[in-house]
């Protein structure tokens, strides 16, 4: 039972990470019906942004907890968000916006190109900046005293601080997102645009801005996920976006792409399934080497048998 509870916690925290990234896929898909394949790289850029902020602050270590939680970590988070949002906005403006209305293949291939280019740009150039570590290898994420490696013991279950961070971040972010989408002018503009961009434009909504905002919102959440990833795994690398992006996309599809709640639910479910699969599938296939296979298999099964996802409504197939 302890094992189960422990794996549940592990799965939930992993799932929260997926969910934070998945929201980006879902928000963008909801508004422009585009699978932003390069979103995983936005997540990676977010992590690097957070790390860069730490370096720019003079690589502070041996901090008092107050300073760490009150200044360093928020600054890192902010830096990551700025980097990720900037990247996403540039991407939207120069790669995706010109392709609106083109056949679906064009933006998808463009996204693959962006994904590769971003990875490579980080791999090749990040480490060349004086004082920055070699980005061709995994970079150890800053150790935050009083946070890294700390955990609580609750009823025999270990809860890492980073786990708590991820779960709380998910809670806060989704609450903010809900408020933003439902209670602000821009949020309503985004909703309208996702319903019908042409009519929205006629109604005086700045559709371009609404779409750019969707990219920015997704990127901000991805950056938070990037930070959480760094804290959880203690290192970051230029390739971290690919697999995380695929998993997050799986989560988004699982929940019903275009549906923010779905992305959260999908992420959590996927995380728990992955954690449980490595524990409870017997024999060789239960080893962690297979966990990605199970995740992808889940993706395929969902796309084939319930493409609208767990929370999506079945769309009427129109002739």
């Amino acid at each position: 039972m302890d094992l189960f509870a422990q794996q549940l916690v592990n799965g939930l925290s992993l799932g929260a990470l997926y969910a934070l990234i998945a929201v980006g896929y879902t928000v963008v898909y909801g508004i422009v019906q585009l699978i932003n394949f390069a979103h995983g790289e936005v997540f990676m850029v977010g992590a690097f942004g957070a790390y860069t902020t730490w370096i720019l602050m003079g690589s502070p270590s041996h901090l008092s907890p107050g300073f760490a939680f009150g200044v360093v970590m928020p600054a890192m988070l902010l830096g990551g968000v700025v980097a990720a949002v900037g990247t996403a906005l540039l991407m939207e403006r120069f790669a995706y916006r010109p392709l609106r209305g083109a056949p679906r293949l064009a933006p998808l291939i463009s996204a693959i190109g962006l994904s590769i280019a971003l990875q490579e740009a980080v791999r090749l150039f990040y480490g060349r900046i004086p004082g920055f570590p070699d980005s061709r290898r995994a970079i150890p994420f800053p150790v935050i005293d009083g946070f890294t490696g700390r955990s609580w013991q609750v009823a025999g279950v270990t809860i890492q601080y980073s786990t708590a961070f991820t779960l709380i971040a998910l809670l806060v972010c989704t609450t903010l997102l809900w408020w933003f989408v439902n209670r602000t002018r821009m949020g309503r503009a985004m909703q309208a645009t996702s319903q019908d961009p042409d009519t929205s434009r006629l109604m005086g909504i700045n559709v371009d801005r609404a779409i750019a905002t969707a990219f920015a919102v997704g990127a901000a959440l991805a950056a938070v996920a990037g930070m959480a990833h760094g804290l959880r795994y203690n290192n970051i690398d230029f390739q971290m976006g690919f697999m995380a992006g695929m998993k997050a996309f799986t989560a988004a599809v699982l929940g019903g792409i275009g549906n923010v709640n779905g992305a959260v639910v999908g992420g959590l479910v996927l995380g728990v399934v992955e954690a449980m699969a490595t524990t409870y599938i017997p024999g060789q296939f239960g080893s962690s080497a297979w966990k990605d296979v199970w995740a992808f298999a889940l993706l395929i099964l969902v796309l084939v048998f319930r493409p609208q996802g767990l929370l999506g409504a079945k769309a009427v197939d129109r002739a």
Binding site: I35, R104, L108, M246, F249, T250, V253, Q284, F285, S287, A289, W290, D292, V293, F296, A297, L299, I300, L303, V304, P307
Partner: peptide, 27 residues
């Protein structure tokens, strides 16, 4: 459409990982 592209991508990854795992230890 896009979904199919993702499905094929996932299959491709499954293939690669499977080939990696059929090593006598994990499979």
């Amino acid at each position: 459409g896009d979904y199919l592209a993702i499905v094929t991508l996932a299959f491709g990854e499954i293939f690669r990982i499977t080939m990696n795992n059929l090593d006598g230890v994990d499979g």
